[in-house]
């Protein structure tokens, strides 16, 4: 068996508050293989961003990792001291945020920001770093890169800025990129371009990607595997083809039915009734049971674990039966 690039085991993230501890991410485990694109979907507040932030070690206090472990190439990184974690950030794990308009420092040229980042992680001289930066900008599709490198962020459009952000995240060839809704803030017509670019670059560089998004369409076209989160828990993990076609978990089914599709004729898009519970009132048992069409007695009492059911992993009591 080949070892995974990233191995997250029983990760818990909590927020201590005056009225007790809120558990925002509750005991999730998954792996990412080298060069693989894994989509993460789930309703707003499901804990997707927190999971991403904890992997790169940028969880904002008071949020903290309360349990579990995160391993990168078999090295534990969730408990590294800040100065060692800093060497991993950018160099081994990169991150792309939602809003390209605000991700770049307005007061510095994009060249300075690129060169600074390259020099932080390599021994390149300024001239070498600059050359590398120009190549990168060309690679992400900035026209006249040699000239544009000396421009300030405000001189670029949103889509162009997100390309610069991608160049910055990729500039020292990290093993993994966490892209947290990288296109949400962009014009719809540009979203597809950026996603295609990201996919191509990561294939070329052999970079694995955790792609957080609300857009199942994007996942279906881009990702190799998909992880569905609900109320801080993983409810289904599997190959994209499998999950899109035949989701096992009722919540994932609901999500997939909500994708508009060109190939199948759908009479009407379905919608999952109700809303995801807040962190304070996550119900006992399966967190989804109040909204679940197939709710059973056991669902209200015991939490289902993520279990292999052949093609995918699902946390749902309906499938545990058929396994045992």
């Amino acid at each position: 068996m080949n070892t995974p690039l990233l191995n997250v085991e029983n990760l818990c993230i909590e927020f201590p508050t005056r009225r007790g501890t809120l558990v925002a991410v509750d005991d999730i485990s998954f792996t990412i293989n080298p060069g693989e694109i894994v989509g993460v979907v789930g309703e707003s507040g499901a804990g997707k961003s927190l999971t991403g932030q904890s992997i790169i070690g940028l969880l904002e206090p008071p949020g903290r990792i309360a349990g579990g472990s995160i391993r990168l190439n078999d090295q534990r990184i969730d408990n590294l001291p800040e100065n060692q974690m800093r060497k991993i950030r950018g160099k081994k794990i990169g991150m792309i945020f939602q809003d390209p308009l605000t991700s770049l420092n307005p007061l510095y040229t994009i060249g300075k920001q690129l060169i600074e980042t390259i020099q932080t992680h390599t021994d390149m001289t300024v001239t070498q770093a600059r050359e590398h930066a120009v190549n990168l900008l060309e690679e992400v599709g900035i026209p006249a890169a040699a000239k544009r490198i000396d421009h300030y962020p405000y001189q670029f459009s949103g889509g162009m800025r997100q390309r610069v952000v991608i160049a910055l995240a990729l500039c020292v060839n990290p093993l993994l990129i966490i892209a947290d809704e990288p296109t949400t803030a962009l014009d719809v017509s540009i979203q597809a371009q950026i996603i295609t670019l990201l996919k191509k670059l990561c294939k070329d560089h052999g970079t694995a990607v955790i792609l957080i998004t609300h857009d199942m369409g994007v996942i279906a076209e881009t990702a190799d595997r998909v992880a569905v989160m609900y109320a801080g828990r993983l409810v289904e993990v599997g190959l994209v083809r499998q999950v899109v076609k035949q989701a096992a978990h009722p919540y994932a089914k609901g999500l997939m039915n909500a994708i508009p599709s060109l190939t199948k004729r759908v009479e009407k898009l379905t919608q999952i009734d109700g809303t995801m519970p807040g962190l304070k009132d996550i119900p006992n048992g399966c967190a989804f049971h109040p909204r679940c069409p197939d709710c059973m007695d056991i669902c209200r009492e015991k939490r289902p674990e993520l279990t292999d059911i052949g093609p995918t992993q699902v946390a749902c009591w309906s499938y545990h039966d058929c396994k045992h």
């Binding site: 950018g90 420092n105 600074e116 932080t120």
Partner: peptide, 26 residues
């Protein structure tokens, strides 16, 4: 609290570069 500081952190820049290079100038 701005995104470009978060992004600078995510790129592994040193605290000195972040605080005095990026934050202070802004």
């Amino acid at each position: 609290r701005t995104d470009y500081i978060k992004f600078a952190r995510a790129r592994g820049l040193s605290n000195r570069a972040i605080y005095f290079g990026h934050a202070l100038k802004n």
